[in-house]
Write a protein that binds this DNA or RNA. Structure first.
Lengths: 159, 159
DNA sequence: TCACATTTAATTGTTCGCAATTGAATCCGC
DNA sequence: GCGGATTCAATTGCGAACAATTAAATGTGA
């Protein structure tokens, strides 16, 4: 077969598909890391990691919600969220309380400091926009495509 | 200001930008996780995690390379790669050897088993393609856009 | 009512991902 | 040569991410 040797061989479609450059998943994976690195210095000023920032974004839209609800919005499970939320509570940005109606449920609420942090966070998106060197319209179009892809992937998982 | 209270308030552009739905970074982040979950059962059969699969993809294209070279291709550093490569070595898929020319450098080479695994891996991309429910053309177009975004983000980091 | 299934968070263990540091090897200017 | 800067991989420590399990609370059917 000489698949690794000196002899020339016409690359098959399967060969091409295994090329790193051709993989959309690697494109998405490496772009996620690039975003993370761009966010890092901005979020350091807020005392947040990127996943913590996502949790705060979700809570600024709606708080007093169960861990499960937060997990569904962020596509994360309790194994990830429980320790992360404990760190946010230690930072006094949120408060965790058992629901009285259903004691299995832990409700997450913002503290005054948690609410207040939103003002400081408003500067973040425009810094990212600048770093992306794109227009808002371009980014939103891309975002819609990527979300559509994500939702199709998640649909397969749900089967 | 009543930013959290009952009074209605016209959402500003900054408010809109903080919405989770509007964030391309969250779209990318959550899509990366969705890919990971789709890959998981496929890669389990190969005995690889997703990052390990990426390393193998890179090595199938070119091996006998330094850790640093691998890191540049995958956008990862030695803190991530060193333990990952040790696990691949333990699985006998790669061999790590110090370069004789420059003893700081560790060269990564595929073992026969490492080469052989490529044949089994050929089935993976088409399964992903099916899960994405897209045409190859659509995916490649998206990939190019995302890579362009990644490269602009990385360019800002390099400044 | 009571057994049994389901739901919800928390926990445990493994693997990334990265910042910061370390230590060895190499390079470079003088 | 020699000394300091640089390069490279490894290490340490922390924070995700997730599978699998646990434990408690709740729901359901006979």
């Amino acid at each position: 077969m000489d698949s690794m040797g000196i002899m020339a061989r016409k690359p098959t479609a399967a060969d091409q598909a295994l090329r790193l450059d051709n993989q959309i998943c690697f494109a998405v994976y490496s772009t996620a890391h690039a975003f993370n690195r761009v966010y890092k210095p901005l979020l350091d000023r807020l005392g947040l990691t990127y996943p913590q920032y996502l949790v705060m974004l979700a809570l600024w839209e709606r708080d007093d919600v169960a861990v499960k609800d937060l997990g569904e919005r962020l596509f994360l499970d309790s194994g990830t969220l429980t320790p992360l939320l404990k760190r946010l509570e230690a930072a006094e940005l949120i408060k965790r309380t058992r629901s009285t109606a259903d004691e299995r449920v832990v409700l997450i609420a913002l503290t005054p400091q948690g609410h207040a942090l939103r003002e400081k966070a408003k500067a973040v998106p425009q810094s990212i926009l600048a770093a992306s060197d794109c227009t808002v319209g371009e980014l939103m179009a891309m975002k819609d495509e990527i979300v559509a892809l994500r939702d199709r992937l998640n649909a397969v998982l749900g089967e």
